[in-house]
Design a protein around this nucleic acid. Structure first.
Lengths: 260, 260
DNA sequence: CGAAAAACTTAATCTATGTTAATTTTTATT
DNA sequence: AATAAAAATTAACATAGATTAAGTTTTTCG
Protein backbone atom coordinates (compact mmCIF):
# COMPACT_ATOMS: atom_id res chain seq x y z
CA UNK A 1 0.00 0.00 0.00
CA UNK A 2 1.64 3.24 -1.10
CA UNK A 3 1.72 6.05 1.40
CA UNK A 4 -0.07 8.31 -1.02
CA UNK A 5 -3.33 6.49 -0.53
CA UNK A 6 -3.23 6.61 3.25
CA UNK A 7 -5.65 8.77 5.21
CA UNK A 8 -4.17 12.22 5.57
CA UNK A 9 -3.51 12.08 9.28
CA UNK A 10 -2.23 8.52 9.29
CA UNK A 11 0.62 9.09 6.87
CA UNK A 12 3.04 10.32 9.45
CA UNK A 13 1.53 8.61 12.48
CA UNK A 14 4.06 6.52 14.38
CA UNK A 15 1.29 4.14 15.48
CA UNK A 16 0.17 3.31 11.96
CA UNK A 17 1.23 -0.31 12.14
CA UNK A 18 0.09 -0.79 15.70
CA UNK A 19 -3.04 -2.55 16.92
CA UNK A 20 -6.37 -1.65 15.35
CA UNK A 21 -4.87 1.27 13.43
CA UNK A 22 -3.44 -1.01 10.77
CA UNK A 23 -6.83 -2.68 10.26
CA UNK A 24 -8.68 0.60 10.05
CA UNK A 25 -6.24 2.11 7.60
CA UNK A 26 -6.65 -0.89 5.31
CA UNK A 27 -10.42 -0.53 5.24
CA UNK A 28 -10.34 3.20 4.75
CA UNK A 29 -7.93 2.76 1.88
CA UNK A 30 -10.46 0.52 0.17
CA UNK A 31 -13.52 2.68 0.74
CA UNK A 32 -11.65 5.98 0.33
CA UNK A 33 -13.54 7.45 3.26
CA UNK A 34 -10.42 9.11 4.54
CA UNK A 35 -12.25 12.27 5.49
CA UNK A 36 -13.95 10.39 8.29
CA UNK A 37 -10.83 10.31 10.45
CA UNK A 38 -10.17 13.50 12.36
CA UNK A 39 -7.64 14.64 14.92
CA UNK A 40 -8.55 16.25 18.21
CA UNK A 41 -6.28 17.76 20.83
CA UNK A 42 -7.10 17.33 24.50
CA UNK A 43 -5.27 19.77 26.80
CA UNK A 44 -3.72 18.49 30.01
CA UNK A 45 -6.27 17.93 32.79
CA UNK A 46 -9.22 18.13 30.41
CA UNK A 47 -11.72 15.37 29.84
CA UNK A 48 -12.34 13.84 26.43
CA UNK A 49 -15.62 12.34 27.58
CA UNK A 50 -17.49 11.70 30.81
CA UNK A 51 -18.97 8.64 32.40
CA UNK A 52 -22.69 8.41 31.53
CA UNK A 53 -22.39 10.24 28.24
CA UNK A 54 -23.37 8.19 25.20
CA UNK A 55 -20.57 7.34 22.82
CA UNK A 56 -20.85 8.68 19.31
CA UNK A 57 -17.34 8.05 18.13
CA UNK A 58 -14.48 5.75 18.89
CA UNK A 59 -11.15 7.32 19.77
CA UNK A 60 -7.60 6.08 19.43
CA UNK A 61 -4.87 7.82 21.40
CA UNK A 62 -2.20 9.13 19.07
CA UNK A 63 0.03 11.09 21.43
CA UNK A 64 0.03 11.76 25.15
CA UNK A 65 -1.28 9.85 28.14
CA UNK A 66 -4.85 9.49 29.32
CA UNK A 67 -6.58 7.82 32.24
CA UNK A 68 -9.90 6.02 32.28
CA UNK A 69 -11.51 6.72 35.62
CA UNK A 70 -14.67 6.13 37.61
CA UNK A 71 -15.59 8.68 40.20
CA UNK A 72 -17.71 8.17 43.29
CA UNK A 73 -19.60 10.83 45.17
CA UNK A 74 -17.48 10.07 48.22
CA UNK A 75 -14.65 11.59 46.25
CA UNK A 76 -12.97 8.24 45.69
CA UNK A 77 -11.70 7.70 42.23
CA UNK A 78 -10.72 4.43 40.58
CA UNK A 79 -8.32 4.55 37.67
CA UNK A 80 -9.33 1.72 35.37
CA UNK A 81 -6.23 1.98 33.27
CA UNK A 82 -3.62 4.20 31.69
CA UNK A 83 -4.26 4.67 28.00
CA UNK A 84 -1.01 4.83 26.01
CA UNK A 85 -0.43 5.88 22.40
CA UNK A 86 -1.95 3.37 20.00
CA UNK A 87 -4.60 2.26 22.50
CA UNK A 88 -8.28 2.29 21.74
CA UNK A 89 -10.09 4.64 24.07
CA UNK A 90 -13.72 3.85 23.97
CA UNK A 91 -14.97 0.99 21.87
CA UNK A 92 -18.51 0.27 22.91
CA UNK A 93 -20.59 -2.47 21.36
CA UNK A 94 -23.79 -0.65 22.17
CA UNK A 95 -24.09 2.97 21.13
CA UNK A 96 -27.11 3.47 23.35
CA UNK A 97 -25.20 2.48 26.45
CA UNK A 98 -23.38 5.18 28.36
CA UNK A 99 -19.64 5.11 28.85
CA UNK A 100 -18.75 3.31 32.01
CA UNK A 101 -15.88 5.70 32.72
CA UNK A 102 -14.49 9.12 32.00
CA UNK A 103 -11.34 9.79 29.99
CA UNK A 104 -8.99 12.51 31.17
CA UNK A 105 -5.71 13.66 29.65
CA UNK A 106 -2.91 13.90 32.20
CA UNK A 107 -0.71 15.60 29.67
CA UNK A 108 -1.60 17.28 26.40
CA UNK A 109 -2.84 14.51 24.15
CA UNK A 110 -3.98 13.98 20.60
CA UNK A 111 -6.69 11.50 19.67
CA UNK A 112 -7.92 10.23 16.32
CA UNK A 113 -11.68 9.95 15.99
CA UNK A 114 -13.02 6.94 14.14
CA UNK A 115 -16.73 6.94 13.40
CA UNK A 116 -18.57 3.73 12.80
CA UNK A 117 -15.95 1.23 13.84
CA UNK A 118 -18.70 -1.31 14.37
CA UNK A 119 -19.85 -1.07 10.77
CA UNK A 120 -16.31 -1.40 9.53
CA UNK A 121 -16.06 -4.60 11.51
CA UNK A 122 -19.10 -6.03 9.77
CA UNK A 123 -17.27 -5.58 6.48
CA UNK A 124 -14.00 -7.03 7.63
CA UNK A 125 -13.43 -10.13 9.74
CA UNK A 126 -9.78 -9.12 9.85
CA UNK A 127 -10.60 -5.85 11.56
CA UNK A 128 -12.96 -7.67 13.93
CA UNK A 129 -10.14 -9.97 14.89
CA UNK A 130 -7.78 -7.08 15.49
CA UNK A 131 -10.36 -5.46 17.67
CA UNK A 132 -10.96 -8.79 19.40
CA UNK A 133 -7.25 -9.04 19.98
CA UNK A 134 -7.24 -5.56 21.48
CA UNK A 135 -10.05 -6.52 23.84
CA UNK A 136 -8.23 -9.70 24.86
CA UNK A 137 -5.23 -7.59 25.68
CA UNK A 138 -7.30 -5.21 27.76
CA UNK A 139 -8.99 -8.05 29.59
CA UNK A 140 -5.59 -9.59 30.23
CA UNK A 141 -4.34 -6.31 31.64
CA UNK A 142 -7.36 -5.90 33.90
CA UNK A 143 -6.98 -9.47 35.15
CA UNK A 144 -3.32 -8.87 35.95
CA UNK A 145 -4.16 -5.76 37.89
CA UNK A 146 -6.89 -7.69 39.67
CA UNK A 147 -4.44 -10.35 40.79
CA UNK A 148 -1.85 -7.85 41.82
CA UNK A 149 -4.22 -5.56 43.66
CA UNK A 150 -5.96 -8.37 45.48
CA UNK A 151 -3.20 -10.31 47.15
CA UNK A 152 -0.13 -8.13 47.29
CA UNK A 153 1.32 -5.51 49.56
CA UNK A 154 1.98 -1.90 48.63
CA UNK A 155 5.61 -2.47 47.66
CA UNK A 156 4.70 -5.27 45.29
CA UNK A 157 1.76 -3.35 43.86
CA UNK A 158 3.82 -0.28 42.98
CA UNK A 159 6.63 -2.43 41.58
CA UNK A 160 4.11 -4.26 39.45
CA UNK A 161 2.65 -1.04 38.10
CA UNK A 162 6.05 0.37 37.22
CA UNK A 163 7.02 -2.77 35.33
CA UNK A 164 3.65 -3.07 33.66
CA UNK A 165 3.85 0.47 32.27
CA UNK A 166 7.47 -0.05 31.29
CA UNK A 167 6.54 -3.16 29.30
CA UNK A 168 3.60 -1.51 27.64
CA UNK A 169 5.64 1.51 26.59
CA UNK A 170 8.58 -0.60 25.51
CA UNK A 171 6.34 -2.58 23.14
CA UNK A 172 5.57 0.71 21.37
CA UNK A 173 9.15 1.89 21.35
CA UNK A 174 8.26 4.75 23.68
CA UNK A 175 10.98 3.93 26.19
CA UNK A 176 14.53 5.18 26.32
CA UNK A 177 16.31 2.12 27.58
CA UNK A 178 15.09 1.62 31.11
CA UNK A 179 13.77 5.16 31.29
CA UNK A 180 10.13 5.87 30.52
CA UNK A 181 8.01 9.01 30.54
CA UNK A 182 5.90 9.03 33.68
CA UNK A 183 3.37 11.87 33.94
CA UNK A 184 1.34 10.18 36.70
CA UNK A 185 0.94 11.91 40.06
CA UNK A 186 1.29 9.89 43.23
CA UNK A 187 -2.45 10.22 43.58
CA UNK A 188 -2.95 8.62 40.15
CA UNK A 189 -0.85 5.66 41.23
CA UNK A 190 -2.85 5.45 44.46
CA UNK A 191 -6.17 5.49 42.60
CA UNK A 192 -4.96 2.81 40.23
CA UNK A 193 -3.80 0.45 42.96
CA UNK A 194 -6.33 1.11 45.70
CA UNK A 195 -3.84 2.75 48.05
CA UNK A 196 -3.68 6.24 49.52
CA UNK A 197 -1.38 8.82 47.98
CA UNK A 198 0.43 9.05 51.31
CA UNK A 199 1.21 5.38 51.34
CA UNK A 200 2.28 5.49 47.71
CA UNK A 201 4.70 8.21 48.74
CA UNK A 202 6.20 6.05 51.49
CA UNK A 203 6.36 3.09 49.11
CA UNK A 204 8.06 5.01 46.30
CA UNK A 205 10.68 6.24 48.75
CA UNK A 206 11.32 2.71 49.89
CA UNK A 207 11.72 1.44 46.32
CA UNK A 208 14.13 4.29 45.59
CA UNK A 209 16.04 3.71 48.82
CA UNK A 210 16.46 0.08 47.74
CA UNK A 211 17.75 1.26 44.34
CA UNK A 212 15.07 -0.62 42.44
CA UNK A 213 13.79 2.40 40.56
CA UNK A 214 13.98 6.17 40.51
CA UNK A 215 11.41 8.79 39.71
CA UNK A 216 12.26 12.41 38.97
CA UNK A 217 10.77 15.08 36.77
CA UNK A 218 8.21 12.81 35.16
CA UNK A 219 10.80 10.23 34.23
CA UNK A 220 10.80 6.77 35.73
CA UNK A 221 13.96 4.66 35.59
CA UNK A 222 13.96 0.96 36.18
CA UNK A 223 17.26 0.67 38.06
CA UNK A 224 17.17 -3.04 38.77
CA UNK A 225 14.91 -4.91 36.42
CA UNK A 226 15.83 -8.30 37.83
CA UNK A 227 15.16 -7.48 41.46
CA UNK A 228 12.00 -5.60 40.62
CA UNK A 229 10.68 -8.55 38.64
CA UNK A 230 11.64 -10.89 41.46
CA UNK A 231 9.74 -8.71 43.90
CA UNK A 232 6.62 -8.84 41.75
CA UNK A 233 6.91 -12.56 41.09
CA UNK A 234 8.08 -13.35 44.58
CA UNK A 235 7.14 -16.93 45.20
CA UNK A 236 5.10 -17.19 42.03
CA UNK A 237 5.23 -20.62 40.53
CA UNK A 238 7.03 -19.95 37.28
CA UNK A 239 7.01 -21.59 33.92
CA UNK A 240 10.49 -22.76 33.10
CA UNK A 241 10.75 -20.48 30.13
CA UNK A 242 9.31 -17.22 29.04
CA UNK A 243 8.31 -14.04 30.72
CA UNK A 244 6.85 -13.45 34.11
CA UNK A 245 3.27 -14.59 34.55
CA UNK A 246 2.42 -11.53 36.58
CA UNK A 247 3.39 -8.99 33.96
CA UNK A 248 1.11 -9.00 30.95
CA UNK A 249 3.19 -9.79 27.94
CA UNK A 250 0.87 -10.36 25.01
CA UNK A 251 2.39 -9.25 21.76
CA UNK A 252 0.90 -8.88 18.34
CA UNK A 253 2.98 -11.75 17.02
CA UNK A 254 0.30 -14.26 17.86
CA UNK A 255 -2.33 -12.53 15.80
CA UNK A 256 0.03 -11.77 12.93
CA UNK A 257 1.02 -15.43 12.75
CA UNK A 258 -2.58 -16.52 12.40
CA UNK A 259 -3.63 -13.86 9.92
CA UNK A 260 -0.79 -14.60 7.52
CA UNK B 1 -32.88 -23.39 10.99
CA UNK B 2 -34.57 -26.74 11.74
CA UNK B 3 -33.40 -28.61 14.79
CA UNK B 4 -32.63 -31.63 12.65
CA UNK B 5 -29.60 -29.96 11.14
CA UNK B 6 -28.14 -28.91 14.46
CA UNK B 7 -24.98 -30.50 15.78
CA UNK B 8 -25.91 -33.57 17.78
CA UNK B 9 -25.00 -32.23 21.19
CA UNK B 10 -26.45 -28.78 20.63
CA UNK B 11 -30.00 -29.91 19.90
CA UNK B 12 -31.04 -30.09 23.50
CA UNK B 13 -28.56 -27.64 24.94
CA UNK B 14 -30.23 -24.90 26.95
CA UNK B 15 -27.41 -22.50 26.02
CA UNK B 16 -27.91 -22.87 22.28
CA UNK B 17 -29.09 -19.30 21.77
CA UNK B 18 -26.61 -17.81 24.19
CA UNK B 19 -23.40 -15.95 23.41
CA UNK B 20 -20.95 -17.49 21.00
CA UNK B 21 -22.87 -20.78 20.88
CA UNK B 22 -25.46 -19.37 18.50
CA UNK B 23 -22.73 -18.14 16.15
CA UNK B 24 -20.88 -21.42 16.20
CA UNK B 25 -23.99 -23.49 15.59
CA UNK B 26 -24.80 -21.38 12.53
CA UNK B 27 -21.38 -21.95 11.00
CA UNK B 28 -21.34 -25.64 11.78
CA UNK B 29 -24.75 -25.99 10.17
CA UNK B 30 -23.33 -24.54 6.97
CA UNK B 31 -20.14 -26.54 6.87
CA UNK B 32 -21.71 -29.71 8.29
CA UNK B 33 -18.68 -30.31 10.46
CA UNK B 34 -20.85 -31.32 13.38
CA UNK B 35 -18.54 -34.12 14.41
CA UNK B 36 -16.00 -31.56 15.54
CA UNK B 37 -17.99 -30.63 18.64
CA UNK B 38 -17.58 -33.03 21.54
CA UNK B 39 -18.77 -33.15 25.12
CA UNK B 40 -16.50 -33.76 28.06
CA UNK B 41 -17.40 -34.24 31.71
CA UNK B 42 -15.17 -32.75 34.38
CA UNK B 43 -15.77 -34.26 37.85
CA UNK B 44 -15.97 -31.96 40.85
CA UNK B 45 -12.56 -30.75 42.05
CA UNK B 46 -10.80 -31.85 38.88
CA UNK B 47 -8.94 -29.55 36.53
CA UNK B 48 -9.86 -29.19 32.88
CA UNK B 49 -6.50 -27.63 32.09
CA UNK B 50 -3.54 -26.19 33.91
CA UNK B 51 -1.75 -22.88 33.75
CA UNK B 52 1.29 -23.17 31.43
CA UNK B 53 -0.22 -25.88 29.27
CA UNK B 54 -0.71 -24.93 25.63
CA UNK B 55 -4.28 -24.67 24.45
CA UNK B 56 -5.37 -26.99 21.69
CA UNK B 57 -9.08 -26.52 21.89
CA UNK B 58 -11.55 -23.93 23.01
CA UNK B 59 -14.10 -24.95 25.60
CA UNK B 60 -17.56 -23.67 26.38
CA UNK B 61 -19.13 -24.54 29.72
CA UNK B 62 -22.42 -26.32 29.21
CA UNK B 63 -23.36 -27.30 32.74
CA UNK B 64 -21.78 -26.80 36.14
CA UNK B 65 -19.50 -24.15 37.59
CA UNK B 66 -15.81 -23.69 37.05
CA UNK B 67 -13.16 -21.34 38.36
CA UNK B 68 -10.23 -19.84 36.51
CA UNK B 69 -7.36 -19.58 38.98
CA UNK B 70 -3.73 -18.62 39.23
CA UNK B 71 -1.65 -20.30 41.90
CA UNK B 72 1.49 -19.00 43.56
CA UNK B 73 4.14 -21.08 45.25
CA UNK B 74 3.38 -19.25 48.51
CA UNK B 75 0.12 -21.14 48.41
CA UNK B 76 -1.88 -18.03 47.57
CA UNK B 77 -4.46 -18.51 44.90
CA UNK B 78 -6.24 -15.85 42.87
CA UNK B 79 -9.59 -16.68 41.36
CA UNK B 80 -9.77 -14.76 38.10
CA UNK B 81 -13.44 -15.44 37.59
CA UNK B 82 -16.31 -17.85 37.97
CA UNK B 83 -17.20 -19.48 34.68
CA UNK B 84 -20.95 -20.03 34.33
CA UNK B 85 -22.89 -22.10 31.79
CA UNK B 86 -22.64 -20.55 28.32
CA UNK B 87 -19.30 -18.90 29.06
CA UNK B 88 -16.26 -19.40 26.91
CA UNK B 89 -13.51 -21.04 28.91
CA UNK B 90 -10.29 -20.54 27.13
CA UNK B 91 -10.21 -18.60 23.94
CA UNK B 92 -6.61 -17.80 23.22
CA UNK B 93 -5.55 -15.74 20.26
CA UNK B 94 -2.19 -17.43 20.17
CA UNK B 95 -2.11 -21.21 20.22
CA UNK B 96 1.58 -21.23 21.05
CA UNK B 97 1.08 -19.23 24.20
CA UNK B 98 0.41 -21.12 27.43
CA UNK B 99 -2.81 -20.65 29.36
CA UNK B 100 -2.45 -17.94 31.90
CA UNK B 101 -4.61 -19.79 34.40
CA UNK B 102 -5.96 -23.16 35.39
CA UNK B 103 -9.59 -24.20 35.11
CA UNK B 104 -11.08 -26.27 37.91
CA UNK B 105 -14.62 -27.61 38.29
CA UNK B 106 -16.11 -26.87 41.68
CA UNK B 107 -19.04 -29.11 40.92
CA UNK B 108 -19.43 -31.77 38.25
CA UNK B 109 -19.39 -29.90 34.96
CA UNK B 110 -19.82 -30.57 31.29
CA UNK B 111 -17.91 -28.68 28.62
CA UNK B 112 -18.24 -28.59 24.84
CA UNK B 113 -14.97 -28.65 22.93
CA UNK B 114 -14.76 -26.42 19.87
CA UNK B 115 -11.69 -26.85 17.70
CA UNK B 116 -10.54 -24.07 15.45
CA UNK B 117 -12.69 -21.24 16.64
CA UNK B 118 -10.20 -18.82 15.18
CA UNK B 119 -10.62 -20.21 11.68
CA UNK B 120 -14.37 -20.14 11.98
CA UNK B 121 -14.09 -16.45 12.80
CA UNK B 122 -12.16 -15.78 9.61
CA UNK B 123 -15.11 -17.20 7.69
CA UNK B 124 -17.80 -15.34 9.56
CA UNK B 125 -17.83 -11.67 10.53
CA UNK B 126 -20.93 -12.39 12.60
CA UNK B 127 -19.12 -14.96 14.72
CA UNK B 128 -16.16 -12.60 15.06
CA UNK B 129 -18.47 -9.96 16.42
CA UNK B 130 -20.07 -12.37 18.86
CA UNK B 131 -16.67 -13.38 20.11
CA UNK B 132 -15.64 -9.74 20.31
CA UNK B 133 -18.76 -9.08 22.29
CA UNK B 134 -17.92 -11.92 24.64
CA UNK B 135 -14.46 -10.47 25.22
CA UNK B 136 -15.88 -7.02 25.87
CA UNK B 137 -18.12 -8.57 28.48
CA UNK B 138 -15.20 -10.35 30.12
CA UNK B 139 -13.12 -7.20 30.15
CA UNK B 140 -16.02 -5.32 31.65
CA UNK B 141 -16.34 -7.95 34.36
CA UNK B 142 -12.63 -7.90 35.14
CA UNK B 143 -12.68 -4.10 35.38
CA UNK B 144 -15.63 -4.17 37.72
CA UNK B 145 -13.89 -6.63 40.00
CA UNK B 146 -10.76 -4.48 39.86
CA UNK B 147 -12.68 -1.44 41.01
CA UNK B 148 -14.47 -3.32 43.72
CA UNK B 149 -11.42 -5.09 45.02
CA UNK B 150 -9.31 -1.95 45.05
CA UNK B 151 -11.32 0.58 46.98
CA UNK B 152 -13.97 -1.21 49.01
CA UNK B 153 -14.21 -2.87 52.37
CA UNK B 154 -14.98 -6.52 52.96
CA UNK B 155 -18.71 -6.02 53.39
CA UNK B 156 -19.02 -4.15 50.12
CA UNK B 157 -16.79 -6.62 48.29
CA UNK B 158 -18.83 -9.65 49.30
CA UNK B 159 -22.09 -7.83 48.57
CA UNK B 160 -20.76 -6.92 45.15
CA UNK B 161 -19.78 -10.50 44.39
CA UNK B 162 -23.15 -11.88 45.44
CA UNK B 163 -25.00 -9.40 43.23
CA UNK B 164 -22.62 -9.85 40.34
CA UNK B 165 -23.15 -13.63 40.31
CA UNK B 166 -26.87 -13.20 40.77
CA UNK B 167 -27.03 -10.91 37.71
CA UNK B 168 -24.93 -13.19 35.60
CA UNK B 169 -27.02 -16.25 36.47
CA UNK B 170 -30.27 -14.36 36.07
CA UNK B 171 -29.32 -13.36 32.50
CA UNK B 172 -29.12 -17.07 31.69
CA UNK B 173 -32.31 -17.98 33.49
CA UNK B 174 -30.36 -20.02 36.02
CA UNK B 175 -31.90 -18.30 39.02
CA UNK B 176 -34.99 -19.20 40.95
CA UNK B 177 -36.30 -15.76 41.79
CA UNK B 178 -33.79 -14.29 44.20
CA UNK B 179 -32.28 -17.70 44.91
CA UNK B 180 -29.24 -18.86 42.99
CA UNK B 181 -27.09 -21.99 43.15
CA UNK B 182 -23.91 -21.19 45.01
CA UNK B 183 -21.30 -23.97 45.08
CA UNK B 184 -18.45 -21.67 46.13
CA UNK B 185 -16.61 -22.31 49.41
CA UNK B 186 -15.77 -19.38 51.64
CA UNK B 187 -12.20 -19.86 50.54
CA UNK B 188 -13.23 -19.44 46.90
CA UNK B 189 -14.90 -16.15 47.75
CA UNK B 190 -11.80 -15.10 49.65
CA UNK B 191 -9.50 -15.94 46.76
CA UNK B 192 -11.73 -14.02 44.36
CA UNK B 193 -11.83 -10.88 46.47
CA UNK B 194 -8.38 -10.84 48.02
CA UNK B 195 -9.61 -11.52 51.55
CA UNK B 196 -8.96 -14.38 53.95
CA UNK B 197 -11.53 -17.14 54.34
CA UNK B 198 -11.83 -16.22 58.00
CA UNK B 199 -12.75 -12.66 57.22
CA UNK B 200 -15.19 -13.80 54.55
CA UNK B 201 -16.82 -15.89 57.25
CA UNK B 202 -17.17 -12.88 59.55
CA UNK B 203 -18.48 -10.79 56.67
CA UNK B 204 -21.05 -13.34 55.52
CA UNK B 205 -22.38 -13.58 59.06
CA UNK B 206 -22.72 -9.84 59.21
CA UNK B 207 -24.60 -9.71 55.90
CA UNK B 208 -26.91 -12.44 57.12
CA UNK B 209 -27.40 -10.77 60.49
CA UNK B 210 -28.44 -7.64 58.59
CA UNK B 211 -30.90 -9.72 56.55
CA UNK B 212 -29.33 -8.70 53.26
CA UNK B 213 -28.74 -12.24 52.06
CA UNK B 214 -28.70 -15.81 53.27
CA UNK B 215 -26.50 -18.74 52.35
CA UNK B 216 -27.35 -22.34 53.17
CA UNK B 217 -26.69 -25.64 51.50
CA UNK B 218 -25.15 -24.17 48.39
CA UNK B 219 -28.07 -21.82 47.81
CA UNK B 220 -27.69 -18.08 48.05
CA UNK B 221 -30.76 -15.89 48.54
CA UNK B 222 -30.76 -12.20 47.90
CA UNK B 223 -33.02 -11.11 50.74
CA UNK B 224 -32.90 -7.37 50.18
CA UNK B 225 -31.89 -6.48 46.67
CA UNK B 226 -32.37 -2.76 47.19
CA UNK B 227 -30.24 -2.46 50.31
CA UNK B 228 -27.59 -4.74 48.91
CA UNK B 229 -27.36 -2.64 45.76
CA UNK B 230 -27.23 0.51 47.85
CA UNK B 231 -24.39 -0.96 49.87
CA UNK B 232 -22.41 -1.71 46.74
CA UNK B 233 -23.18 1.62 45.13
CA UNK B 234 -22.87 3.53 48.37
CA UNK B 235 -22.06 7.05 47.44
CA UNK B 236 -21.47 6.22 43.81
CA UNK B 237 -22.44 9.01 41.52
CA UNK B 238 -25.30 7.48 39.62
CA UNK B 239 -26.70 7.93 36.18
CA UNK B 240 -30.29 9.07 36.44
CA UNK B 241 -31.60 5.98 34.77
CA UNK B 242 -30.51 2.45 34.30
CA UNK B 243 -28.71 -0.09 36.32
CA UNK B 244 -25.97 0.30 38.83
CA UNK B 245 -22.60 1.27 37.43
CA UNK B 246 -20.79 -1.05 39.82
CA UNK B 247 -22.55 -4.20 38.72
CA UNK B 248 -21.69 -5.24 35.21
CA UNK B 249 -24.89 -5.29 33.25
CA UNK B 250 -24.03 -5.75 29.61
CA UNK B 251 -26.68 -7.69 27.82
CA UNK B 252 -26.75 -9.18 24.37
CA UNK B 253 -29.38 -6.72 23.28
CA UNK B 254 -26.80 -4.22 22.13
CA UNK B 255 -25.20 -6.69 19.78
CA UNK B 256 -28.50 -8.06 18.53
CA UNK B 257 -29.72 -4.56 17.75
CA UNK B 258 -26.70 -3.84 15.62
CA UNK B 259 -26.64 -7.16 13.81
CA UNK B 260 -30.26 -6.92 12.72
C1' DC C 1 8.81 37.66 38.50
C1' DG C 2 5.61 36.79 42.37
C1' DA C 3 1.48 34.74 44.22
C1' DA C 4 -1.54 30.93 44.43
C1' DA C 5 -2.38 26.27 43.70
C1' DA C 6 -0.97 21.71 43.30
C1' DA C 7 1.98 18.12 44.58
C1' DC C 8 4.81 16.04 47.75
C1' DT C 9 6.67 14.85 52.48
C1' DT C 10 6.74 13.46 57.34
C1' DA C 11 4.91 12.03 61.72
C1' DA C 12 1.38 10.34 65.12
C1' DT C 13 -2.50 7.72 65.72
C1' DC C 14 -6.25 4.48 64.45
C1' DT C 15 -8.64 0.50 62.36
C1' DA C 16 -9.92 -3.08 59.17
C1' DT C 17 -8.25 -7.12 58.07
C1' DG C 18 -4.68 -10.70 58.64
C1' DT C 19 -2.67 -14.40 61.55
C1' DT C 20 -2.65 -18.20 64.60
C1' DA C 21 -4.87 -21.64 66.87
C1' DA C 22 -8.43 -24.49 68.62
C1' DT C 23 -13.31 -26.34 68.15
C1' DT C 24 -17.44 -27.66 65.84
C1' DT C 25 -20.14 -28.88 61.96
C1' DT C 26 -20.76 -30.76 57.47
C1' DT C 27 -19.59 -33.73 53.75
C1' DA C 28 -17.41 -37.67 51.70
C1' DT C 29 -15.81 -42.45 51.99
C1' DT C 30 -15.76 -47.30 53.37
C1' DA D 1 -23.32 -46.27 60.48
C1' DA D 2 -18.58 -45.26 61.49
C1' DT D 3 -14.65 -42.86 60.27
C1' DA D 4 -12.01 -39.58 58.04
C1' DA D 5 -11.51 -35.34 55.61
C1' DA D 6 -13.08 -30.86 54.45
C1' DA D 7 -15.35 -26.71 55.64
C1' DA D 8 -17.05 -23.49 58.79
C1' DT D 9 -16.73 -21.06 63.17
C1' DT D 10 -14.92 -18.37 67.06
C1' DA D 11 -11.58 -15.81 69.74
C1' DA D 12 -7.13 -13.42 70.86
C1' DC D 13 -3.72 -10.91 69.03
C1' DA D 14 -0.73 -8.52 65.34
C1' DT D 15 0.01 -5.32 61.55
C1' DA D 16 -0.16 -2.99 57.00
C1' DG D 17 -2.09 0.67 55.47
C1' DA D 18 -5.71 4.50 56.42
C1' DT D 19 -6.49 8.84 58.50
C1' DT D 20 -5.49 13.32 60.17
C1' DA D 21 -2.75 17.13 60.39
C1' DA D 22 0.94 20.16 59.41
C1' DG D 23 4.55 21.15 56.96
C1' DT D 24 7.65 21.92 52.47
C1' DT D 25 8.60 21.95 47.73
C1' DT D 26 7.32 22.34 42.92
C1' DT D 27 4.42 23.90 39.28
C1' DT D 28 1.28 27.04 37.17
C1' DC D 29 -0.18 31.24 35.59
C1' DG D 30 -1.31 36.25 35.71
Amino acid sequence: MGTNILPKYCKNCPRIHYGVCSGIVKILSKTKKFHSIKLQTVPAKKHLFYQYESPVKTYILREGWMLLTQLSAQGKRQVIRSVLPGDLLSFQTDVEKAFSYSAIAIEESVVCTVPDLFNMCCQSPELSLKLLWEEVRERDLAEHYMTNIAHRNALEKVAFMALELYHRLETRGLNNGYIIPFPLKQEDIADTLGLTAIHVNRTLHQLQADNLLSLHKHKLSILDYEKLTALVNQGQSQPNTGKSPTIPCLTEDGLAKQLN
